[in-house]
Amino acid sequence: MARAARGIRIIASIAALCVLATAGQLARAGDVADDTTPAPTQATVDLAGRWEGRSYEMARAGVDCGDKPCMLTLDLARCGDGWCGIEVIGREQRCGATALRLDAGAANPGGSALYKGKLELAKGTEPYVVEAYLMSMAEGETQRELQIVGDTGGEFRMFRRSFPFNATLARISEARCQPESTVSLLD
């Protein structure tokens, strides 16, 4: 039952992603005559922290996850005007490469936010073009989850039936990894 409800929620959020993206495109194209529609504003939500969630794509890619399900763990930190996700690797939780890059995001009236960017899970592989949707885990809950949907081929085709990459991450703790940068000595 809970699983079915979760499935419905994920489908609903992907549908919401499509609607948001379409609205954004229409607005950009100047096709929206009604200028009273509130435009998405830049998201001010602090995404910083360690986010974790199950990743079926990692299992399919042949990543050795031992006896446990493959988990994608990312430390999100401010990075320029957007967000960077540093991969946290293995049981020792060592800091890896910057795998995720998101823009500053666009906030929506309901408290959710939409981010766009790229995700590269392995060196030399084609990065996923991703849309990440920050939303409440359940109605009325303050705890949020980050649903990441990724497409290949250099563009995000929002109307496709299924996506090559899907993961739902929850914030589990403070971040400990920082993106490698020229400014890291000043940290």
């Binding site: 990075c79 320029g80 060592r94 890896g96 910057t98 993106p179 020229t182 000595l185």
Partner: peptide, 23 residues
């Protein structure tokens, strides 16, 4: 370096294992 969207040479050195880990 995702901040500057370019390749950089960090001022600090690292062992080969870490360099591989951070690609």
């Amino acid at each position: 370096d995702a901040v500057t969207d370019s390749w950089i040479v960090p001022p600090r050195k690292s062992p080969a294992e870490r360099i591989e880990r951070i690609r």
